[in-house]
């Protein structure tokens, strides 16, 4: 069932960019009321990069993130993830891509309430079919990585916002994803907590080689990334390395 072969790149992925947008557009609605969210995006991101996406609201950065995360498909143009044309995949195949290669972190944490941190982190592994002991060990390890050792049995209600976001990051990395997609991960946190989260993301990027793409409003947070892409009116306005 897992049909993983369909998701494998057809030849030597190293020769192709890890992520490649070619003239990607996204139009919502039809006819008169149609709204162009993306108007032709070209973007390449290599393995191991840490990219911040910035831009005013309505600039298309969230739409871009949805397409990156295989939650949505381009109206026209192609999006290749590991040289697989995501636009041609079925809903289930895209779900499998997410399951095997991607981790998500949301602004609002989106943890299951009344469920312990450990069980929250175990969730993606359950969908992967990882069983019993291994699942528990990996979840414990992920919690340790984000610095929450000893908090395994706490439910989201008993954790601070920063801690909740750490649990969410643990949930995203527990499967050992190739890429971490973070949608305003510090949007709900104060500066001190935000800095902690950014430092955690930076270390995940440099120590574990996880590619990170992050949406943010705050230039201070974007400064942690090594490359900043600005969106405006559905187009890439600027794409440059972060100033050191």
């Amino acid at each position: 069932m897992t049909n993983k072969n369909a998701l494998q790149p057809n030849n030597e992925p190293e020769k192709h960019p890890f992520i490649e947008f070619e003239g990607v557009t996204k139009v919502y609605g039809q006819g008169q009321g149609a709204m162009e969210a993306l108007r032709g995006i070209d973007l390449r991101i290599s393995k191991g990069e840490f990219v911040a996406i910035m831009g005013p609201s309505g600039s298309g950065k969230s739409t871009c993130m949805n397409i990156l995360g295989c939650l949505d498909t381009p109206t026209s143009g192609t999006y290749r993830f590991r040289n697989v044309d995501v636009g041609r995949l079925t809903r289930n195949q895209r779900a499998l891509l997410r399951r095997h290669y991607q981790g998500f972190v949301f602004q609002g944490y989106n943890l299951l309430n009344r469920t312990s941190a450990l069980e929250n982190v175990e969730l993606p592994l359950i969908y992967r079919g990882t069983s019993g002991r291994e699942r528990r060990d990996r979840a414990l390890h992920a919690l340790e990585t984000v610095g929450l050792k000893g908090w395994e049995t706490h439910t989201p209600g008993e954790l601070s916002g920063g801690q909740q976001q750490r649990v969410a990051i643990a949930r995203a990395i527990v499967t050992g994803p190739a890429i971490l997609l973070a949608d305003e991960p510090t949007g709900n946190l104060d500066t001190a907590r935000s800095v902690e989260i950014m430092e955690l993301l930076t270390s995940l990027n440099s120590d574990q080689g996880i590619t990170i793409i992050m949406i943010t409003h705050e230039p201070d947070m974007a400064a942690y990334a090594r490359r900043i892409v600005h969106f405006r009116d559905g187009l890439v306005a600027s794409d440059e390395p972060a100033s050191p």
């Binding site: 939650l71 289930n92 499998l96 997410r98």
Partner: peptide, 16 residues
């Protein structure tokens, strides 16, 4: 609904 969205985002299939 939101929780289902999270589940789908982190790799749950429709079937799951």
């Amino acid at each position: 609904t939101r929780e289902i969205g999270v589940r789908l985002a982190i790799g749950a299939l429709e079937r799951d």
